[in-house]
């Protein structure tokens, strides 16, 4: 089970958002943030977001300004770095501060068209205030907004989803197998790094999906497959070694039986 816990860390793809906007430990209560007095709808959405729930961001991290200043003019003064609503190019730059990988590959994709003011940005798919954890299912809903009925896009989405889902499933299966064998082979502990490497390789796939380039995604999946195959080889070897030990045990008991029999046969002659 600890491997499943580790897996959730490795993948960093946990389940959906919180249902109730509770103030997380270490996070500032939005009641103390003056922005939400006027922008209460945005505040309500932000309260449910992973950015707030994990204590990562407040309003000023994207919009600038001073969220703890009750005077709106002072809060939005130039020296506070207030930018208000970010522009299209600001959005990618802002998100890239933390999500540099996805931003890098997004720039290589078909949606990174600076000449088209209507082309999508990060918030088109991930939302702006109510940002939830990105899952594969996100593609089902967001891509269809613009590409409904476009069989070429739908095919590509299905292909990306299936490749990633397959990789995730193989990592989970390998982690479970690893966990079950580790109880019988303490030496496997030394190969934990291999499994972590496979998890890291899968994490490398996620940002590449933003380029929507099957060649790029395929290459990173291949790299993951190599890592997971290495884990599989170690586990196969562990299972074979366990089988060999089983045969050694059989040998030990044959030795015991032979010796006890010999002793008993010599009983009369001693």
């Amino acid at each position: 089970m600890r491997w499943l816990a580790l897996l959730s860390l490795v993948l960093a793809w946990p389940a959906g958002a919180q249902d109730t906007p509770e103030v997380p430990e270490g996070q500032v209560s939005l009641d103390d943030v003056w922005c939400t007095v006027c922008h209460f709808e945005q505040g309500d959405e932000f309260a449910l977001s992973v950015h707030y729930q994990r204590g990562l961001l407040l309003c000023n991290d994207c919009h600038g300004g001073n969220p703890f200043e009750p005077d709106a003019e002072v809060a939005k003064a130039q020296d506070t770095g207030f930018i208000g609503k970010p522009t299209r190019s600001d959005i990618v730059t802002l998100c890239a501060k933390c999500h540099s990988g996805p931003a890098e590959f997004f720039a290589l994709g078909p949606h990174a068209d600076d000449t088209d003011p209507d082309s999508p940005t990060c918030v088109t798919c991930h939302q702006n205030h109510l940002v939830i954890d990105a899952t594969l299912a996100l593609m089902d809903t967001t891509c269809a907004v613009c590409h409904r009925g476009d069989s070429r896009v739908e095919k590509r989405v299905t292909a990306i989803e299936s490749k990633l889902a397959g990789a995730e499933a193989s990592l989970v299966a390998m982690a479970v197998r690893f966990d079950s064998l580790q109880g019988l082979d303490a030496g496997l502990r030394r190969s934990v790094g291999l499994l972590e490497g496979a998890g890291a390789a899968l994490r490398q796939v996620e940002p590449r999906t933003h380029a929507l380039d099957m060649g790029l995604i395929g290459a990173s999946i291949d790299a993951f497959d190599e890592e997971i195959a290495a884990v599989g080889e170690v586990l196969d070897e562990s299972e074979h070694w366990r089988q060999r030990r089983g045969w050694i045990v059989v040998g030990v008991w044959l030795f015991v039986a032979a010796n006890v029999t010999l002793l008993w046969m010599r009983r009369r002659t001693l």
């Binding site: 030496g187 089983g246 030990v252 002793l263 008993w264 009983r267």
Partner: peptide
């Protein structure tokens, strides 16, 4: 002889446990 037989069996048990459940 009885002692020896038991010692062999216990030795078998010990080695089996060590081999199968490190």
């Amino acid at each position: 002889l009885r002692d020896s037989a038991t010692m062999y069996v216990i030795f078998g048990v010990l080695v089996s446990l060590a081999l199968l459940y490190p």
